[in-house]
Nucleic acid binder design. Structure first.
Lengths: 229, 229
DNA sequence: CGGATTTTGTTACGGCGTTCACAAGCTCGT
DNA sequence: ACGAGCTTGTGAACGCCGTAACAAAATCCG
């Protein structure tokens, strides 16, 4: 039960499951699917935590947000827990997405194995270049941007992926919003603005590298100054 | 000595910047570079915060970790601040990286514009498939995994990128570690283990989509259930 | 049947990150 | 020269997340 301190008044009612937990649930689900495929029936929080590399207490707390689906003294029933997690994060249905921008990145995403194994289906590809329309990539024919509204309606698409160059990202996002998309994942190295009610998540592939570079530099400058650690 | 946890280093001589700040500095830097290219000389925290979409106080606190480089009543000198951020995150030098796995994702990364604009240079491509060795992708000839140590030494590479399928990720990481790499960015949907002293950052492209799907589902189920907390 | 054992669900706590609010300090107009 | 108006830098409060410890519950075994 959610008796937590949040007033659950004012803003958007109850906030549901913490984002940090939502980000881990797919990882748990993948591990559980693996266990189920190997015929494992039940699993303790310790075993599962070891498997995915997190603290057992954290895992139990994460799962407790879904409800009390474990049995004390026994553990969790793998099959049942799979179903509950899948239901919570929306993996009982396939989610259709449309990718805007079929460059290298768009092509990579259209065949990313991490998608298909998690209930995400690339329903359509769109590119601004007229010369590429009709070309088949990863088994999908590229459509024109003008066809977006029709594609969204036809495939019941709720999520759009922007994989264009940075300059075209805003235009791509605008087209997606006009077509009725309410959630956008932006891989372009540029930030986009959208109307209220539309969710955007920004993925900047180079930021992770920058963080690594920062730590690398700290290593070298530190060892040059004083031989710590 | 602190009794609890890991006291990172020990002294105030430790100029360590919080990870959350390090992750934002590249974003600030890109915006500042844009301003400089348009001839803007000074910039207030409010303007810059609006530009990148963060809270002004947060931005000021982030920048304060670098030192007191602003002028009260005026703002920050764009050119100077660019230089300071670049120095702090190691962007004064180019960072050479090697990409293991030249599938769609590896190809996309090898030509990702977000890299070159941030001082990250793809120095070498490596693939496990003998048939692909010698093939030129994004202007770089693919090498064999066995050549990794030589490539790392030749190009002074400190960071390796894993862009293989999930099954090959651990092998790829091992090869990188053996070749002397100390920082790894893993795009494969699988988690890898490395010796102490080697940094790993995991990027799972599908997790972001899962989070969007979760919020989408909450929208629909909420409008259906309505009212119940 | 009752206690030992196992494992969950929860609570308490410490740390980190974000936001607010305000003093300190700079520039400009008069 | 001096006050008015900005803007930075920072101390304090707040909320979120992760960890540890513990009570509740279910099974097993003598």
């Amino acid at each position: 039960m959610t008796i937590l301190g949040t007033p659950s008044f004012g803003d958007d009612a109850d906030r549901g499951i913490p984002d940090a937990t939502v980000a881990r649930l797919p990882v748990y689900l993948r591990a559980l699917n693996g266990l189920r495929d190997r015929g494992v029936v039940t699993c303790s929080s310790n075993e599962l935590a070891e498997l995915v590399g997190v603290n057992p207490a954290k895992l139990r707390k994460d799962l407790s947000h879904l409800g009390s689906y474990g049995t004390r003294g026994v553990g969790y029933e793998v099959e049942f827990l799979c179903h509950q997690i899948a239901r919570e994060i929306g993996q009982t249905q396939d989610w259709n997405v449309v990718i805007v921008g079929v460059g290298h990145l768009g092509t990579a995403l259209s065949s990313y194995q991490g998608f298909s194994s998690r209930g995400i289906r690339v329903a359509a590809l769109v590119d601004a270049d007229p010369a590429r329309i009709g070309e088949v990539v990863s088994g999908i024919a590229i459509s024109a941007v003008a066809d977006l509204p029709a594609l969204v309606a036809e495939h019941d698409v709720a999520i759009g992926v922007v994989a264009t160059p940075g300059e075209a990202a805003q235009t791509a996002a605008d087209s997606l919003v006009d077509a009725g998309i309410t959630s956008i994942l932006n891989f372009a190295p540029a930030l986009v603005t959208v109307p209220d009610g539309v969710q955007v998540r920004q993925v900047d592939l180079s930021i992770e590298l920058q963080i690594l570079a920062y730590h690398e530099q700290r290593k070298t400058t530190h060892s040059a100054a004083e031989g710590v650690i």
